[in-house]
């Protein structure tokens, strides 16, 4: 590996462009920048694969265990039983989209290229949301399809022609899309991968289990816990003690937006 000693800087083929002459980059360029970064690291692909594999795989097992005599609502819950686990991988994706940049120092090249941090973070959030949403919808429909195929002949079949089933399956994908952004916000605040992942797993997976073990005293916590409220969208029959599906999801999405704005304010104030 040797430097091309014969090449002098003045010999570059591109004519010298002065700051004022070049076109001013727009938001779309920040989005492209973020998209190239997300797609060019391997962790993106293995986290998304893991999310799909776990959710769909457990969904097949769940469908296989469904009994005849169970309502379609209960059967659908059994099909989506892997989601609380699979969502952890989506969280990894969202957290790493932020912390991998801090961990490697590449956040500095990023901020020198796009010094307007709110614009950059909006672009990042958009990319993370789009990737999580598309993956989430694929996972959701794949889980539904695979889980349904695994159902026994005597078992009630939740049909997509039923509006509530379609809403639940679509909603599951949207939930994962928003969850990616929530994880991104956590990653931006915490900056370190280990801390970010631990927190995200605690928020989405461990704490809800703890709340369930607390019985009645844990119920109000579960009701207002963001990810639990968001997951109500997966229920065909709303549970009386929790938020209704759409308000629950709206509450979750609103809190995510608040978290993202808070993270942006913090990042904007901090040294990189």
């Amino acid at each position: 590996m040797t430097m091309a000693t014969t090449t002098t800087p003045a010999a570059s083929a591109t004519p010298r462009s002065h700051g004022t002459a070049a076109r001013r980059p727009r938001f779309v360029h920040a989005v492209t920048f973020e998209w190239i970064k997300v797609r060019s690291i391997r962790s993106t692909w293995w986290t998304l694969f893991a999310a799909s594999f776990i959710t769909v795989g457990v969904g097949v097992l769940g469908g296989g265990h469904a009994h005849s005599g169970e309502s379609a609502a209960l059967v659908l819950r059994e099909i989506f039983v892997g989601l609380p686990l699979g969502q952890v991988a989506i969280c990894l994706f969202g957290v790493l989209a932020a912390t991998s940049e801090y961990g490697t120092g590449s956040i500095r090249s990023t901020f020198t290229a796009v010094p307007h941090r709110p614009r950059l973070l909006a672009a990042k959030a958009l990319v993370v949301f789009a990737v999580s949403l598309v993956t989430g919808l694929l996972i959701s429909f794949a889980t539904y399809t695979a889980g349904s195929l695994a159902l026994g002949t005597q078992v009630a079949h939740p049909a997509l022609s039923d509006g509530a089933v379609l809403r639940a399956v679509l909603g599951g994908g949207c939930y994962l899309g928003v969850l990616g952004v929530l994880a991104l916000a956590l990653g931006l605040v915490l900056r370190a991968s280990a801390g970010g992942i631990t927190t995200a797993v605690s928020v989405t997976f461990i704490l809800p289990i703890v709340f369930r073990m607390m019985g009645d005293s844990g119920q109000p916590l579960l009701k207002w816990w963001p990810t639990e409220a968001g997951q109500q969208i997966l229920l065909l029959i709303p549970s009386p003690e929790n938020l209704a599906p759409l308000p629950g999801f709206g509450y979750f999405a609103t809190l995510t937006l608040v978290a993202l704005i808070g993270a942006t304010v913090l990042v904007n104030r901090r040294d990189a």
Partner: peptide, 12 residues
């Protein structure tokens, strides 16, 4: 190396 380790030079 203000670059993600897993990214190629060109992608960066």
């Amino acid at each position: 190396k203000a670059v993600h380790d897993g990214r190629t030079a060109r992608e960066h």
